[in-house]
Amino acid sequence: MLLNQFLLLAAALFAIGVYGVLARRNGVLVLMSIELILNAVNINLVAFSAVRETVDGEIFALFIIAVAAAEVGVGLAMVLLLYRNRRSIDLTEIDLLRG
């Protein structure tokens, strides 16, 4: 197996994740897309770890999984708050920063 095939798969997932973050209006879906991006990074880390035959990359992947759990918790709490206040989780309606 080549390193590149994993990296390209990760790049593809990353790009799809970016698309999801930018295109979807549903807050929950945006959070899911962020998970996609994080997974792409994890694949990269584990692949490099396999090439170097050390466990450091895997440990970083584990850290990312933990941090992702925290991120989802807080993110979903924010989406719930949004829903409670505005009865909508449409991100295009949140534009208080408009110039």
């Binding site: 973050v21 930018l22 295109a23 949140i94 534009d95 408009r98 110039g99």
Partner: peptide, 17 residues
């Protein structure tokens, strides 16, 4: 340029990426 300041997070994210 003023139009860029839509106030929508995703637009800013798109510019960022």
């Amino acid at each position: 340029l003023r139009k860029i300041q839509t106030g929508k997070v995703q637009d800013y994210a798109a510019i960022l990426f």
